[in-house]
């Protein structure tokens, strides 16, 4: 019988420190058994359970895109036991990955639509997956205009800085990078909180969907801006975080009413969330 709790063994291929505070590292994994990569077929927006023998398991959004083959990537914030242990692991070490888990951004519905992607802090991982996926030459024509508002507290806390610069240089994606503040006199991008920058850039709601991921305070103040721009709740999509153990809707802890964030989410429209108990 297929065991959904059994992780696929992976080798850490590289560990990159993403941020100046060294709290975020990106782990690139290669499956020890190449056939497991095919079994781990995922879609942008999903997450996986990362497994470290002797430490435990944690749910982490998949930062690589399904269009990137031969590896998977996760950006991990150092907060608890497993993540702290992982931050001291190195290339060559063996660990496990289980999944993919949960639903994904509704790519079928999003075809032919404009996308406004809004991210804050380290909640940019599945958004990175999504952007890389959409910018892939095979996919780019399926989507309309892409606007990205991405903010961090200061420039040293932005993830994937080389890629952000590369996207800035492209003409098929409108990047609006911002920081809460900076002392860097050469800072070329925006300064201001994500809600304010979203309001200032005012991406059109016409034929558009918004995907928003970030800290609760950012989401709280950005939603009214989106509403003002004309985005109805069914076209605002978010992804939730929860404490999880099984990742497959069985262990009982991550529910919002009838819905398990691990299995029925983590991606919900604002309309759906408004009908569920707000225990997140």
């Amino acid at each position: 019988m297929n065991n959904p709790y059994l992780p696929y063994p992976v080798r850490i291929d590289s560990v990159i420190t993403e941020t100046e505070d060294r709290n975020l590292k990106t782990f690139k994994f290669i499956f020890l058994n190449p056939e497991d990569e095919e079994k781990f077929k995922y879609t942008a927006g999903q997450f996986a359970m990362l497994s470290v023998a002797g430490q435990g398991e944690i749910p982490i959004g998949i930062a690589s895109s399904p269009t990137e083959k031969g590896f998977i990537k996760f950006t991990v914030n150092k907060v608890g036991r497993v993540t702290t242990f992982m931050h001291n692991m190195k290339a060559g070490d063996i660990m496990g990955v289980r999944g993919p888990c949960g639903n994904w951004y509704p790519w079928d519905i999003l075809e032919g639509k404009n996308l406004v992607i809004i991210g804050g802090g380290f909640a940019f991982t599945t958004l990175r997956s999504s952007i890389v996926y959409m910018l892939n030459p095979e996919n780019r024509s399926k989507y309309g205009k892409i606007d990205v508002v991405y903010g961090a507290r200061h420039p040293g806390l932005l993830l994937y800085r080389d890629e952000l610069a590369a996207w800035e240089a492209r003409d098929d994606i409108n990047m609006h990078i911002t920081v809460d503040g900076t002392t860097d006199p050469n800072w070329k991008y925006n300064v201001g909180f994500v809600p304010a920058i979203t309001k200032q850039k005012a991406p059109s709601a016409e034929n558009s969907y918004a995907i928003i991921c970030g800290p609760p305070v950012m989401i709280k103040f950005t939603l009214p801006v989106l509403t003002e721009l004309g985005f109805p709740p069914e076209r605002i999509i978010s992804s939730l975080e929860m404490r999880m153990k099984c990742g497959i809707g069985i262990c009982g802890r991550c529910n919002l009413g009838t819905e398990y964030v691990c299995k029925d989410g983590p991606v919900f429209t604002l309309e759906k969330l408004s009908k569920l108990p707000n225990e997140y």
Partner: peptide
């Protein structure tokens, strides 16, 4: 009531188990 926790437990530093344990909301 079926809720459970998953925890790792290590013996003698060289071998370990992943356990499933009843948990409670």
């Amino acid at each position: 009531c079926w809720c459970f926790d998953i925890q790792d437990e290590v013996q003698e530093g060289t071998k370990g188990d992943r356990l499933r344990l009843w948990d409670s909301c």
